[in-house]
Amino acid sequence: MSVPRTWRLRQQRYRLVGEVCDRCGVPIFPPRDVCPECEAPAKTPFTFSGRGEVYSYSTVYHPPVGFKQDAPYTVALVRLEEGPLVTAQLTDVEADQVEVGMPVEMVTRRLQAEGEEGVISYGYKFRPLLRR
């Protein structure tokens, strides 16, 4: 993952910053600058809580180049409590403990590392919601 790209996406990767539509109020993630519901401009930043539940999940046994060191790992579509779906890896959980509807929360973790001395890309993953 290129450094400029990771930098450009830092607000999304580290803080889950999306947008909210100025006209219809729908929260949007990932940000897309045009509201998917009413097509009005939507450039007002909106920070998501990071809490949601698993909508679907899959465990990857044959990863793409660059993700071998983590395989097998479980990925999910997470329904954020504000509404949008987000695609992310699950972490701190065994694959056979995951189920649809499981409450999860966002954490910042390593997404990819370019070898021993290369750049490390960080971003959001989701773990089972901790009881506090």
Partner: peptide, 23 residues
């Protein structure tokens, strides 16, 4: 930016669909 960067293979994307469909 938002699927492949998270380590999803194309198979995994279809895996998400199939799991939800079965559910």
């Amino acid at each position: 930016d938002y699927e492949a960067a998270q380590g999803l293979s194309f198979v995994a994307i279809n895996g998400l669909l199939m799991r939800r469909y079965m559910y």
